[in-house]
Design a protein around this nucleic acid. Structure first.
Lengths: 245, 245
DNA sequence: GGGGAGAGATGCCGC
DNA sequence: GCGGCATTTCTCCCC
């Protein structure tokens, strides 16, 4: 694609509500929260109406470089093409030196929809709250996902001997971080309530060996609980959409 | 764009090493690690040669839906267009119901380059290792970023009175997590080395009030250190690329 | 706007 | 492969 042609096209579509996509051989430099340099290669560049700019290499999930929404972009053509993006508030700068444009497209996209998602850690807390037997016999949940002065404890309540219990849920392997998080909560409750004994239970499908060791060192407990896969409210939708399963 | 035309084009370019980009009005459903549903709207869909698939709404940095590399995609045309992606290993499924295609493009991208990045936490450790005065007078770093049996301590060494010091670096605001991480290291070293006194220093540009409180409660210390913005090895590059600054 | 924590986190490196 | 951890993390929620 011709440089002058590209220059005119992109110039006419920056800041007019259009979404722009093009493929180009380019070199990218970023300066801001860090400094980066990406030598020449073929990439996809996506510019959204909110001025988000993404640079994607031909592999991987995450963009190799990007500028968040609210940045301002400008295109220059001298000997070479230069697409420059700035965000003065965050002091971030991105420069894309464009050597060759493979294709260019733009369109005004209309999308006001938001995604519905089920199966998060919160749903796991809810499941435990409704089915306290998943933790143990006699567990009486008092509250769930509440931002109390004790912290963001997923589920908390009392056991059959009326000892305070804090439950921390993780959807995947419990790690060292999860253990220290639980430990923080337990200590905070002890201190704030002036209690000697508070139990802390890490509820997750599995746990790493080091995490389990640290858990035991701190007299915390592990209960294997699997996160819920389907939520009632989306079950029907999903069934319709994935009926072949 | 005509449905049959799109069908033939995308069919011919899936799994042949091409990168595919198109804009379409579509509905998206995902089932796997969670369940999600996104009602109809205009989006950009990007398919890479490694079979990464991204769905981008016209705003925001992150894709609203995606499939990671290694998935397999197929396109179907009956009454409507259906782009289906599966990953049998991770048991993930994505369906894109395409109502209207706004544009379509494909190209074989050639990119073997990797990014150079400076200013990460590792660079911060390096800076402290080389300039121990940034921590305090008399600090003698012994090792850096080593995966020893004591953990992944960023910098460790002795102070002027030969007391063991573990330094944990954070590029941004030190939070509760950073404090518990440091606390873990200090305790681990104490236990493994059988030492009474081990100092732990959190090195970051600033720290949250709660984190500072917890730090003091645990007799840990805070030293304000700013991460390096420019690394020698990239300085010249950056100067050339951002000479206008 | 900052703090705190999850995320369908991702990606990197080491064992 | 899993474990541990940073990320130009991003995003959401709450204060």
């Amino acid at each position: 694609m011709d440089k002058d042609d590209f220059f005119e096209k992109i110039k006419g579509n920056l800041n007019n509500g259009s979404t722009i996509v093009f493929a180009a051989n380019c070199e990218v430099a970023y300066s801001g929260r860090a400094e980066s340099h990406l030598p020449g290669g073929d990439r996809i560049i996506l510019i959204k109406p909110d001025n988000t700019l993404l640079v994607h290499q031909p592999s991987g999930t995450t963009p190799i470089n990007y500028m968040k929404g609210g940045s301002s972009h400008a295109i220059y053509l001298k000997d070479d093409l230069l697409l420059e993006s700035r965000n003065l508030l965050t002091k971030e700068y991105l420069k894309i030196f464009i050597k060759k444009v493979h294709f260019f497209n733009t369109h005004k996209l209309d999308d006001a929809e938001k995604i519905s998602l089920a199966g998060s850690e919160k749903d796991m807390s809810e499941m435990i709250y409704k089915n306290p037997l998943l933790i143990e016999l006699g567990f009486k949940p008092l509250s769930m996902e509440e931002h109390t002065k004790y912290g963001f404890i997923d589920v908390f309540g009392y056991d059959k001997e009326n000892v305070f219990v804090a439950v921390e849920c993780k959807r995947y392997t419990g790690d060292l971080n999860a253990v220290t998080q639980l430990r923080r909560y337990v200590e905070k409750i002890k201190k704030l309530k002036g209690l000697e004994k508070v139990r802390g239970i890490l509820a997750c499908p599995k746990i790493s060996p080091n995490a389990l060791k640290m858990l035991h060192d701190w007299n915390l407990e592990y209960k294997s609980v699997h996160p819920p896969k389907h939520l009632e409210k989306y079950k029907k939708d999903q069934k319709k959409l994935f009926h072949y399963e």
